[in-house]
Structures are given as structure tokens and as C-alpha cells.
Design a protein around this nucleic acid. Structure first.
Lengths: 215, 215
DNA sequence: AAGCGATTTAACCAAACGGTTAATACTAAA
DNA sequence: TTTAGTATTAACCGTTTGGTTAAATCGCTT
């Protein structure tokens, strides 16, 4: 009985997860979640009292799955190269399996930033503190006091972008081919590592002086 | 009369724009749009037949405002440095004024990618073609045939990220201070230009070997 | 097999939603 | 000032929505 209960709860969470991620909190319908879970709609309210509470549970479920796994992966690395490498690989794997996930997270970032930040704190995930701890190892720049923040933004941005913009980017630059895009993503880890360590010569890159090109 | 008509139409579009951007297509309510425009709800259907058509109009309105302005700004530049510079500046300005805009675009990217791609084509905005035109000026790499795509992803990612993740990023790394974050954004153009041209020495950046740090 | 709490369902509900209608107010031309 | 078309509104409508309820079913204990 207890086993069955856990079972249904998991079926519901799984279905809710799919729908919430694909459609967003507002676009999701309780009926569709019930249908996908293969149960009656009233059961949703039996397990989770309201749509909002259900969404929170789903979010927690997802975050608990992603954040600690990522956190541990980073912990086991020591220099920047390693961090970046495992970081990019982690995201490539995660998002290839769950394409809607980034959009889902960004929606939360904008609609409930405090809740999200509080959740991270509650899980002892505190990037700022980690930055502070390593401040003395980051070279001082006369240009900025935010070198660490800039670099984190760079790495996150470059890693995430091909995933969060995939549908458009794939259409614009890869003839909408999944295969080619996956190839592009696969070689990206190496490319970024080289790019970040400054070994790619960009002075050679010049744009056409012909002014009639679009974009 | 014609003047008044244009007036109300603009009032509606303006209000709809706000609500759609803040709440998304699904989260937006026709009543709220009417309220913000200071008119009766039925008028919305008088000008735009349905919610969906109204959303399309709003989207077109926004896209027509952003894309050509950006397109022109890029056209007037010749080398990569200039492109990147004007590009970053453009986004910093645009998104500081419309913080919800990136989220809005990404939602469209995932929910209606074909519509978006078609719209760009209809506006003669074709980044792929521009890339092809300049292919011979991009250095050939033995590692990848997608150097151009990688670089565009890098620049877009690094530029956009601090905007699309702002609520969380600002809380985690800037004690949620608008002033400090704006300062961070302001110095970012310079930082990125230097970073991209490879003049920032990252070999000096090493992470602490102490394994008990979070993140 | 009877009893009992936990689980599941069909039927229902009030509120909110996008959209319609019919009547009114406005504007400009005659 | 009448008239005709446009713009605007109040009231209404059917549907969908998240949520409730009361009854049925299941699984276990005695």
C-alpha cells in the first residue's frame, strides 16, 4: 500500500514535470497532467493540495536532481580548465536530455527569484562564498573588481546559449538539422576550452566591408 | 477620428506589450490589458479579433523595433571588434530598458520557432547568409568547420546571459544591488572586448584546492 | 469475512476566462 | 441639424479552469 502510494506520487510528479516544463506554470493544465499520469484529476489534489504546491514540488524535484549533481562534479576539480570542462560537459548532457529545462529555470528566475535564491541557500549552494574564498587566487585587474563574476557570466553564457536558443539557432545556422547541431554541441567543449585559454587567434577574423549584408 | 483610432490602438498595443512581456502569452489576461489601457475589454476584440492575433501584433511590434535597429547598427561596422562592441552596447541599452524582453523572446523561440524564423526571413534578416558571405575571411581551423557559429554563440551568450539571468545573478553575486549590478553591466563591454581578443591572462586563475567549498 | 483506514473515482461547483452582442456615444460630412 | 458610419461600452454567454465532495474501491488487520 505504501509502495503503491509512492508509485502514484512518482507517476504524478513525472507527468507534472513533463507538462510544467513544456508548457510552463500558466500553460499547464491539471487535466493534462492527470491524463499523462493515467489517473483521475482529483487525485492530483489528494496528493498535492493545489496547482501551485504541485509546481513547487516539481521544481524542488528537478532542482534537487540538478544542483547537487552539478555541485559535486565541480567540487572534484581543482583548476579552472577542469571546472570549465566538467561544467560544459555536464550542461551538454543534461540539456540534451531535457531541452525545455533552461527555459523552465529562466522562467523561475524572473517570476520567483527570491524563492529560487532561498532554495539554493537551503541546499548550501552559495557561489558567492566560493568566489570570495578564492578571491586571493584570482589575479587583480586594474580594470575591474568583478573579474570572477565576469568569468562566471562568460562561461555560463557561452555554455547555456546554444541550448536555450537552440530552436532558432539550429534553424538559422544549421538548416534545422538535429544531427549537425548535436555535432556542433559535441565539439563545443573543446572549442570553449581553447577559446577561454586564449589560443584562438581572432585578429585574423575580419568582416566583409561590403555594407549590403543583413544581420 | 482617424487620429483617435490610432491613439487607442497604440494605447492597447502598449498595454498589451507590457502585460504579454511580464506574464507571457498564457499568463496574460485580456481584462488586465484592457485595464492598463484604460478601455473596455470588448474594444480589444474590436481592434484585434482574438488574444492570439493581438499577441502576434505585439510581437511584430516589438520585433520590428528591435531587429532593424540592431541590423543597421551592425551594418555600419567593419571589423569584428566594432561589431562586438556595438552589439554589446546595443543589448545593454535595450535590455536595461526592457528587462523582461529576453525571457519573452526565448519563450517564442521555444513555442513558435518556425514563426520566428519566418518573420526574420520576411524582414530580410538572414545571419546565415551573412556568415556564408564572410566565410572566406574567417580563418580555417583544423578543429572545426563551425568557427563562425561558435563565435556568434559565444558573443550572444556572454552578452545576453547577465541580462536573462539578472534576478538570480544579482542576488547571488551582487547582494541584490541594482546600482552595483548596473556598474557591472556598464564595464562589461570593455571587459568582453578584451576577453575576446585574448588579452586577459587566465593561466593565473587557479581555484582553491580546498575541496569543501560549495557550488 | 468483517471492519477500517487509505486510495481512487465520477460528478459536481463556483470563478475566471476569452469572446459576443446590442445598444449608446462620438465625429464629421451633408 | 440631420445623418451615417465609427468608436466605445455594459451586459451577457458558453467554455474551461482549478478545486471539492461524496461515494466507491482497494489492501490490510483481526
Amino acid at each position: 500500500m505504501n509502495q503503491l502510494k509512492e508509485d502514484t506520487e512518482q507517476k504524478i510528479i513525472q507527468a507534472a514535470r513533463e507538462v510544467f516544463i513544456e508548457k510552463g506554470m500558466d500553460g499547464a493544465r491539471m487535466q493534462e497532467i492527470a491524463d499523462r499520469a493515467g489517473i483521475n484529476k482529483a487525485l492530483l489534489h489528494y496528493y498535492f493540495r493545489s496547482k501551485e504546491k504541485m509546481f513547487d514540488a516539481v521544481f524542488q524535484d528537478i532542482a534537487m536532481e540538478i544542483i547537487p549533481r552539478f555541485s559535486q562534479q565541480v567540487k572534484n576539480t581543482q583548476n579552472l580548465q577542469e571546472v570549465i570542462g566538467s561544467f560544459i560537459e555536464f550542461y551538454n548532457n543534461t540539456f540534451r536530455q531535457n531541452p525545455f529545462l533552461p527555459q523552465f529555470f529562466f522562467h523561475e528566475i524572473w517570476q520567483h527569484p527570491d524563492k529560487l535564491a532561498a532554495f539554493m541557500k537551503s541546499q548550501d549552494v552559495d557561489p558567492a562564498e566560493m568566489l570570495k574564498k578564492n578571491q586571493h587566487r584570482i589575479p587583480q585587474s586594474e580594470d575591474t573588481e568583478f573579474l570572477g563574476q565576469h568569468m562566471i557570466a562568460n562561461i555560463l553564457g557561452m555554455t547555456l546559449f546554444p541550448h536555450i536558443a537552440r530552436p532558432l539557432f539550429q534553424r538559422l545556422f544549421f538548416e534545422n538539422s538535429d544531427v549537425v547541431y548535436d555535432q556542433f554541441l559535441a565539439e563545443r567543449t573543446d572549442f570553449l576550452m581553447k577559446f577561454i585559454s586564449g589560443s584562438i587567434d581572432l585578429d585574423a577574423v575580419k568582416f566583409d566591408e561590403n555594407p549590403d549584408d543583413d544581420f
